[in-house]
Design a protein around this nucleic acid. Sequence first.
RNA 1: GCUGCUGUAGCUCAGUCGGUAGAGUGCGUCCUUGGUAAGGACGAGGUCAUGGGUUCGAAUCCCAUCAGCAGCUCCA
Length: 731
Amino acid sequence: MIEVQLPDGNIVQHEDNATALDVAKGISEGLARATAAAVIDGTTVDAMRPLTELTDLRPVPLQLLTTRDPEAAAVMRHSCAHIMARAIMRLYEGVGLAFGPVKGNTFYYDFDLATPISEDDFPKIEAEMKKIVKEGEPFERFTMNREESIQFCEDLNQELKVEHIKSGLADHESLSFYRQGEFVDLCRGPHIPHAGMAKAFKILNVAGSHWKGDVSNRSLQRVYGTAFFDKKELAAYMEQIEEAKKRDHRVLGSRLQLFTINPDVGQGLCLWLPKGATIRATLEDFIKKELTRRGYEPVYSPHIGRVELYETSGHFPYYRDSQFAPLFGHSAGQLVDYWIRCLDPDEDSVQPPDAAAEKKLLDAAMVLGFSGEEFPLSGSADEKRAVLRKWEKQQERYLLKPMNCPHHAQMYKAIPRSYRDLPVRLAEFGTVYRHEQSGELNGMLRVRGLTQDDAHLFCTPEQVEQEFKDTLGLVKYVLEAVGLEDYRVQLSTKDPGSDKYVGSDELWQNAQDTLRKVLTEAGLDFIEMPGEAAFYGPKADFMVRDCLGREWQLGTVQLDYNLPNRFELEYTGKDNKQHRPVMIHRAPFGSMERFVGMLIEHFAGAFPLWLAPEQIRVLPLSEKSDDYAKDVATRLRQAGFRVTTDLQSAKLQAKIRDAQMDLIPYMLVVGPKEAEQNAVAVRCRIDGDLGVMSFDDALQKLTDERNNQTIRQVAKSTFSAVEDVATGNEY
RNA sequence: GCUGCUGUAGCUCAGUCGGUAGAGUGCGUCCUUGGUAAGGACGAGGUCAUGGGUUCGAAUCCCAUCAGCAGCUCCA
């Protein structure tokens, strides 16, 4: 007999081989039917395994997970991934299984399968899954040692599983499998007791993926689905997704005429329409004021810079693929540049030219004015490159500015600096261009031309901590000003195993320790992400979710001990010697494009008064009141408000409806009565009719709300920044 | 960039078996002159993303290109 302690403290006696299901049954049949899994000592476990296998603790501290618990839903979703895999294996030949974890409310499974699965196939897969659920066979767990497991997976023709056991699971002596009817899968579990519990599921979409997330590995087909214990919950979830799509900034951006993207202008190049531009300008004014208060100085830099500048900074080789190609003073430059790349042994996207191709290149270069005799046609690749480099250097090469830091570094350097001048804080709304992969572009959230609310701080090593702290404070201040409080801070650090980072380990250690310390002191919860740092230093990023739950980086603060070295930045210390400053990169908004894009979704297009592009609309009751309406609008405009009048010959109801649909914060209804008393009937978008008040009272009310930057947010987003990202039930 | 899907009026979409286009909304004009979420009539608008091919005939079938969407990968 074993003793089991339930969450209410009661202790019950059971047979030695009792399972959580047996315990549930001991309480009631209904409970047993609803039990999907169990939790012992913080770990989710199978409800159908003997408790003695699961823990040495006595009495066994057991918590049952029923169909009402969110943790149970995750277990069921993973079981659903197995059910889907089983259905697909019944319908297709030669299905290779990869991984099938749970991610939030969804699950997926990656398949190695020659036949492409398309949306049209979903109904038949779902039908097969329904059959499996109806059959309601149990999930059975068994274990094998390494050699047996490898042999077993080989016999099943599951080579990806074999590979994973050999490489990824090299330290596992014993491995578990789950069987469900004819379907067996290497899996850590846990699972629901039987397939019959997966009552409501839906296949959502199919997409490409790669084995172990590496593009150089074979590509797989990933099928996504979602599942709930209850059909109503599933329907509610699908409804929620549809609702979320309505606040998509791309949808609202076009409906509210905030921005547009035109293929002839270029992919990822955002055109700010007047209303979007008004929001942006308001935010820029807001932060400019704050920067002045905090001792920042404005600067401006041009949109291009010589390639040598980025060679000095170290950016050029690192980000070659995500920059627009250099602009050359002479058109031959492009050719020479390409030629050099072809001869570069590290460049695998282009091949060295054969003799005939090389002759053509040389002819072209000669036409363009280079001396062909210089070129060692029969020489080594290195000799050739040396000559080509010389040619390349004979002319100017410019880069469309991919970042502002090198420009600001040169501005720091332009003036002799004393320790008394530090910190120097140079701020600029810097427009930069990055050739992001076409598949990455997303409305305003990921673009190829963006304006950072950038600044670079140059300070003494002693000042770093305080400056970093103040900068974090600024980011928090900015986010709070717009009511964006649902964010997550990510500390991106160096991956010790990688060689892409510049600077000594000591500097990195030092910088990361400082960041950690200040973040902790600021009371900010943060998660550390090794390998996510910039090549020049660690950073603290503020992450926010969009309407569909995808995470985006907004504000960022980055520590940099490397660029000052590369640019040999100095200041004169107290000791009259030259010292090296430390650089802090920071952008509280991140970029204006992404920030405004996120704000559109955050407010679902309904901006608070201080940000709304159209703050007030005056609605005359009929044409008889048009003149008074125009007069009211003029007076409000003089008070600094963005006002329009609706002079359509439509009924008041229709005008109100239009204004509500356009998400205008305040409507002022004016008719003969108001005109007579110099009054307005105020209607708030959220609170509705507020009644008639004198013009002066209304102006005072609106002015207060605007100046206080009051946030009135009605509909919150479905996705929270702290939501669990992924639950891996796979090994 | 990769995998899959999509592209018809400003927007949301319909268009059957291949027979050269339709709705709602928005827009314009006129009527209507009103009191807190849709008054009525008429009208304008499309080289069916672009370029090829198959066919007597293509929005519809095939190929390519471009763009968009989802995911993957990437993100200074």
